[in-house]
Design a protein around this nucleic acid. Structure first.
Length: 1211
RNA sequence: AGAUCCGUAGCUCAGCCUGGUUAGAGCACUACACUGAUAAUGUAGGGGUCAGCAGUUCAAAUCUGCUCGGGUCUACCA
């Protein structure tokens, strides 16, 4: 950032009477030359289509910056001119840049976090459009799913059980269909107001028949390939809500709660047989028990196995049951012995043990690995008639091996109830121990479980008299010598997010997609995706792919895409024969369904309603592919049996993951459009979509690759490969459609409140995007969101941050424009003159243009790399540090002084170009303000034939403009000015007081040349008359030497410290010698080390007798002597300053000439006479009249001298 | 539990990939200047154990490991 300069109070270009100073800008002045054609022709994207552009003669000037008003005006303009549509139409025929819109669900209100991801999407699309691509952006709506259902239930005051009773499924779904787009208007409004350009007129909507038909086609493709199958899965299930829950739902905030449960370490009595004989020998007893811990005692009646870790060490321990005090031998993990037995009890006196004993005696009888326990048998813990081994249908009550067993808590032996745990089920399948489901879907025990029958395992009915059955189970075990420890235990347990009741893990029939079959392909393809940030792709997403399990697709709901599978019915408890005779059909299109329907009518399973033809009936039945209509359809199997639809709906994530195909109703129509818009070049959503949309898009693309190829091969080759007529080979297809849904994905982080907390309605810290945009405008909001932090980092949203952006960035840019407009209007600058080649412009113009083009290069690179934060910050720096703070400030006089000369034209052209280029650079991020700025400029000059900045091309850098040495020396000038000003500050000499000279030691000729070229700038900036350079060999300067660590590090290694110390001790003579001879020999530990001049950094540190400051290699010394001559000149300037203030106070126009009468104060007479010409030129007076006693007038103060002046406007 | 990101001034963030000896900006604060960009602008100042510990190295904000704190995602187990 700049650390320089206050106001430069000097005249520059007009004739200065100050003999000591060269007028600075005069040096830059360029005489008019034969005009040359414009250097940089600017091409509109499509000049033909734009006809009449509104032209203005004056740049608009404003009272003050009003960003919300600008947003509104520009929005109205866009809508009137169809600016968005045109921005796409203009690029017709250009290469497409494919963007997919992740569909939001419109049944909730949009929040500020939607603004960030949409800004990101929008800016990339706008940028690519300006880069010459055609970017179609089809909007979309996600319409299915549980949130919609719940909202509807809440609204109607019903629960899931009421559906089909109090309300028909048809009515229910109709309500969902209506409700899901409840806030569509709000979303559309946000889209408009934030300036998100997306096609909302033709969005894809996931509940539409065409959309569902594509989903069915995809499912049928998977079915054909054997990738869609049915199986049991243990899933979270909410008995209170009567529904299975997805893991997604379980991860709703607040679902995992800390609860206190009654837990028990149950004792399973081992059976003595050949395999277990070794234990019984060790124990010399028949009372051997496996100890297993559970936090869900209600699962114990369903126990079928005990699982141990094969590599875990277990011990057989002789002890007593702490409740019954009977002698027992227990088996548990050795590592967990300490949890149950106190050290002082080890090998204590067993004989002395009484029920009153505090310490339980114990003794290890033997140790073995878990693998030694495999296949041992035990007696069923809680046998009843309902849970007999026959009912389990396997070979239960054995010890199993499982990798999931740990010794972190419990006993290292896991009670395994196959019905109620995913791990349990998996290991149970492997060992064929059967399954017992002793709890029904209401969450209560089934009949035939003795005293526990029909009791709810948790208080699902909000019964005030509920008695915890878990406690009763524990009590019974305790009495029966089957419990070793019973205690309350606090742990986190998932709860149904709707009913707040604990979920059960419950076996449910489910349909799966065999994603694991394509795992390798998905992992490989993921490596080709450009992830922003990279780590999300490699880490979070990569790991997720590595640990992939089959996709559980089915949901037992009402409002969603139905699974298109019909099959013949089997009895409730089917035999193998029933199942193998079952016939099944997966429907892949409406036509297929209609044909099947007709067959069914023929078979007599379906009958056309009276008054309808068969065709009419078939069409009516397939007019809506939702429940309940599809469920009413009975089809006929090959063998003539009736087939009913499987009741399940599919996961809504499938809906959104299938959008690349379904949004175009592929492959039923739009095949060509699809071919050109697949895969996406770019998508962006919140990082929470990693396992959601990002995954489902990726998975479906990988699964569907071959089917897509098949369909595309039906198209004419020219569509797939423009320009080629030959056949499209498999390799060609593979290259273009590798089974990938997107090439670049940006995952943006969360938006937190300003204290870093997640925004939630509960905390009341949500930020309303409408308020924010209304108050600060979309531009400042967008700019803030993009530049505050990288999009993928979670950002703390603070309205003060937007205020800052508004003031700092937009305020500065607005001021700069206002400044330009003010003077350009006075001078009538309309860019009518030919473009002045940079070589003919003053150095400062060439500098800012160089800097501008460097900026353009960097911004292009940043945006190409999807780093908008960097791009925005670069623009901020340029605007503040270079354009406003240095260029405009230094050049102000060029704009308002003198005639409409070549120099002025150069200044206008330069500033104009900076503003115009900035408007185009910032257009993707802050589209309204950019357009406002662009149009304000372009309306007058008509320089670019485009009605909107969004129809122009993105700026590209012109290497000819870039002059790095020039940028370097300007930096030197800024640094030098800053240093000198800080010195002035230190000695309290105001900038208006001229000083005689500055000394700058130069360490090499190059530095001197660079400084000489900006000498005038520095002198003007700091109001010093001369700069003297001190060459390196001047003994006047005191120098400092230090090692060049980078150069010396490798050479010296460990000797670095010693050398560093030695250099610190160097005398001025040593340094001079080194400079003169180029190298010097040091002795470190008596070893010679030769240092060359390149291996050290020599800087000037001090100039004795002067006030000195330095920064890096630059040192300045200021002569602070104010001679009487200098003081007089200072007075003159002070005087000018006072008169200017009066002019302003009196409200004179810039061009008004004035008459001045001044009281003749002796101490000022010399100043006023000597600098008369200068003063008159400055204040636009013909002369200064010194009068003895002005009759009336304003009292002013010039360097502590009081006097009266009388100023009037000249007629 | 696993993965990942983050931790630098009161606040928001650069710098870290590629280690180099005075760690930078903006905001806020304090003081001053400027007063023809003026509801603007500039200058200066104070303010940091670079979360902590250990390691590698001549040298660590920067590389490595561990710990702590915060966020997110995933999983959830007796």
């Amino acid at each position: 950032m700049p650390t320089h300069a206050s106001r430069r109070p000097y005249p520059c270009q007009d004739s200065s009477p100050l003999p000591a100073r060269k007028p600075i800008i005069g040096r830059f002045f360029v005489n008019s030359r034969p005009q040359q054609p414009a250097h940089r022709p600017l091409q509109p994207p499509n000049p033909v289509k734009i006809n009449a552009l509104y032209m203005a003669t004056k740049y608009k000037e404003y009272q003050q910056l009003n960003l919300p008003a600008i947003s509104q005006d520009i929005l109205a303009k866009w809508e009137a001119e169809r600016a968005f549509e045109k921005s796409v139409e203009f690029r017709e025929g250009a290469s497409p840049f494919v963007f997919y819109e992740g569909p939001p669900s419109a049944n909730g209100l949009p929040g500020i976090h939607h603004v960030i991801s949409r800004t990101l999407k929008d800016l990339v699309c706008r940028y690519k459009t300006m880069k010459g691509f055609q970017v179609k952006r089809k909007g979309g709506w996600d319409t299915h799913g549980l949130p919609v259902e719940l909202q509807v239930e809440k609204m109607l005051g019903i629960t899931k059980e009421d559906i089909g009773k109090k309300i028909s499924i048809a009515e229910y779904n109709e309500t969902c269909r209506r409700e899901v787009l409840k806030y569509k208007d709000k979303w559309d409004e946000l889209t408009r107001r934030m300036g998100y350009w997306v096609d909302l007129k033709n969005p894809y909507i996931t509940f539409e028949n065409n959309y569902i038909e594509t989903l069915w086609w995809i499912l049928a493709q998977l079915y054909k390939k054997g990738l869609l199958y049915e199986s049991i899965s243990i899933q979270p299930y909410s008995p209170a809500a009567g529904t299975g829950l997805s893991s997604h739902e379980l991860n709703q905030p607040g679902c995992y709660k800390d609860v206190k449960d009654t837990t028990v370490v149950a004792m399973f009595k081992a059976v003595r047989n050949a395999k277990s004989e070794f234990l019984f020998r060790l124990a010399e007893s028949n009372d051997i028990y496996f100890m297993a811990w559970t936090t869900t005692p209600w699962t114990l009646p369903s126990n079928l196995g005990l699982t141990v870790g094969p590599r875990i060490d277990y011990a057989l321990v002789k002890t007593f049951n702490p409740y019954t005090h009977l002698p027992v031998n227990v088996i548990l993990a050795k590592a967990l012995i300490g949890k149950y037995f106190k050290p002082e009890g080890e090998s204590a006196d067993f004989a002395a043990f009484t029920p009153e004993s505090k310490i339980l005696p114990w003794k290890i009888l033997g140790e073995f690995k878990g693998s030694n326990l495999e296949e041992l048998r035990y007696e069923q813990l809680l046998p009843f008639e309902a849970n007999s081994p026959e009912k389990a249908g396997g070979d239960p009550f054995r010890v199993l091996l499982g990798d999931f067993v740990t010794t972190e808590d419990g006993t290292g032996i896991v009670h395994t109830a196959t019905a109620f745990g995913a791990d349990d089920y998996r290991v149970g399948q492997k060992y064929n121990i059967g399954i017992l489901i002793m709890v029904d879907k209401q969450g209560k025990f089934v009949d035939g479980l003795g005293e526990f029958s029909n009791r709810y395992v948790k208080n699902y009915k909000d019964d005030p008299n509920y008695v915890d059955v878990n406690v009763d189970i524990c009590v019974r075990l305790k009495k029966d010598n089957q419990a070793f420890r019973i205690e309350k235990y606090e742990h986190t347990y998932p709860h149904c997010w709707r009913t707040d009741k604990p979920v059960l893990y419950y076996p449910l029939d489910a349909w799966f997609i065999r994603t694991t079959a394509l795992k390798d392909r998905m992992v490989e393809l993921n490596k080709t995706i450009n992830w922003k940030p990279k780590s999300t792709g490699e880490g979070r997403f990569g790991n997720w792919l590595e640990n992939m399990v089959d996709w559980n697709l089915s949901r037992s709901r009402y409002w969603g895409t139905p699974l298109p599978v019909w099959r013949t019915e089997v009895p409730e408890t089917p035999t193998e024969a029933d199942l193998s005779a079952r016939e099944e059909l997966c429907i892949g299109s409406i036509a297929e369904l209609q044909a099947a329907l007709k067959a069914s009518i023929k078979a007599g399973f379906m009958k056309p309603t009276t008054g309808l033809t068969e065709q009419g009936y078939v069409e009516k039945l397939t007019a809506d592919l939702h429940k309940p209509y599809v469920d009413d359809i009975v089809l006929v199997s090959k063998t003539g049996r009736p087939m009913k639809r499987v009741a399940d709906l599919i996961d809504v994530w499938f809906d959104s993951g299938a959008m690349p195909y379904a949004q175009w109703h592929f492959p039923f129509e739009n095949q060509e459009t699809f071919a050109q818009n697949y895969p996406a070049d770019f998508i962006a959503e919140g990082v929470d979509q990693t396992r959601g949309w990002f995954y489902t898009l990726h998975a479906i693309a990988a699964l569907l690759k071959e089917s897509v190829h098949e369909e595309l091969q039906k198209l004419p080759p020219a569509i797939l490969q423009p320009g080629s007529r030959g056949p499209v080979t498999a390799a060609d297809l593979d290259k273009k459609y590798p089974g990938l849904a997107y090439k670049t994905v940006v995952s943006n982080g969360l938006v937190l409140d300003k204290n870093g907390n997640k925004m939630s309605k509960r905390l009341g810290n949500v930020v309303d995007p409408f308020d924010t945009i209304g108050k600060f405008g979309a531009d400042a909001t967008r700019w803030y969101l993009i530049t505050n932090a990288s999009p993928w980092e979670s950002m703390k949203f603070d309205l003060d941050g937007i205020k800052e952006v508004q003031r700092k960035f937009f305020g500065t840019l607005y001021n700069t424009y206002q400044f330009f407009a003010l003077y350009a209007n006075v001078d009538g600058f309309t860019f009518a003159e030919a473009y002045v080649p940079p070589a003919e412009r003053p150095e400062i113009d060439r500098w800012i243009l160089s800097s501008l083009n460097s900026l353009v290069t960097k911004v292009n690179a940043a945006l190409d790399d999807y780093e908008p934060t960097l791009a925005g910050r670069l623009m901020e720096d340029f605007l503040d540090e270079h354009l406003s703070n240095w260029y405009v400030r230094l050049c102000r006089r060029r704009f308002w002084k003198g005639d409409y000369s070549q120099d002025k034209i150069c200044a206008y052209q330069t500033l104009y170009e900076c503003l115009e280029t900035l408007s185009r650079l910032m257009a993707p991020i802050s589209p309204f303000f950019a357009d406002w700025l662009f149009v304000n400029l372009n309306e007058v000059t008509g320089r670019i034939k485009a009605a909107s900045v969004h129809h122009t091309d993105f700026p590209t850098a012109d290497a000819d403009f870039i002059d790095l040495p020039l940028e370097e020396r300007m930096q030197l000038a800024q640094d030098a000015s800053s240093l000198i000003l800080s010195l002035r500050k230190k000695v309290n000499i105001k900038v208006r007081q001229p000083l005689q000279k500055v000394l700058i030691p130069v360490l090499n000729p190059d530095m001197k040349h660079q400084l000489e070229k900006v000498e005038d700038l520095i002198k003007a900036e700091v109001n010093v008359k001369g700069i003297e350079y001190l060459n390196g060999d001047n003994s006047f300067i005191k120098k400092k030497i230090k090692p060049n660590f980078i150069a010396l590090g490798k050479k010296l290694g460990a000797k670095m410290k010693a050398v560093s110390a030695a250099l610190a001790e160097f005398s001025q003579e040593n340094i001079a010698k080194l400079e003169k001879e180029g190298d010097i020999t040091l002795f470190i530990d008596k070893e010679p080390i030769i240092l060359s001049i390149q291996e050290v950094d020599i800087t000037s540190e001090d100039i004795p007798g002067w006030v000195v400051a330095n920064k890096n290699a630059l040192t300045v010394a200021l002569d602070v002597t104010v001679t009487p001559e200098l003081a007089q000149e200072g007075n003159a300037r002070e005087f000018v300053n006072r008169i200017q203030k009066i002019r302003k106070d009196n409200g004179y126009e810039l061009t008004d000439r004035i008459l001045v009468k001044v009281a003749d104060v002796p101490s000022l007479t010399d100043s006023l006479t000597q600098f008369n010409d200068y003063i008159c030129a400055e204040i636009l007076a013909d002369s200064i009249e010194l009068v003895k006693e002005p009759t009336n007038g304003t009292e002013i103060e010039v360097n502590d001298i009081l006097l009266k002046v009388f100023v009037t406007k000249k007629a």
